[in-house]
């Protein structure tokens, strides 16, 4: 699971109002290189919740993203490279995603998050 996926997920248990972002407990993290596509990065940038993304990157051991960002940074090659790496190359292979409100744990196994709920949670 890449951090792009993490940025899209929230806890949807019935009654939960503050299910985003999910905290990450990482067991195995892998890096898989992919070609950088600056257009994709520029396109996705305004849609990301930056703070959630940056905090998540910390949980996976990536510490070089700035706290404050603005679209001008997308012109900077060095920033793009870091952004690309954290968003698309770092994978959470094994671990758990945790709801900030209820503590409900969603497993990530073989790189796939499982967001299924039990009957009493929907």
């Amino acid at each position: 699971m890449r951090l792009l996926t993490h940025n899209m997920l929230s806890c949807n248990i019935k009654g939960v109002t503050n299910g985003f972002p999910l905290a990450i407990e990482a067991t195995t993290v892998e890096t898989k290189e992919v070609d950088m596509n600056p257009d994709f990065l520029r396109h996705i940038f305004p849609k990301l919740e930056w703070k959630a993304f940056r905090d998540a990157s910390h949980s996976l051991g990536v510490d070089d993203l700035p706290e404050q960002v603005d679209p001008d940074m997308l012109l900077d090659e060095e920033f793009l490279r870091r952004f690309h790496h954290a968003l698309l190359e770092v994978h959470l292979e094994e671990g758990v995603l945790i709801c900030p409100e209820t503590g409900r744990r969603f497993p990530v196994s073989k790189g796939i998050p499982n967001m299924l709920l039990n009957e009493d949670e929907v």
Partner: peptide, 14 residues
């Protein structure tokens, strides 16, 4: 991005 979900469970908010 691939997720195990019931329809779009966990993704609906975003």
């Amino acid at each position: 991005e691939v997720v195990v979900a019931d329809l779009v469970s966990g993704l609906e908010k975003r």
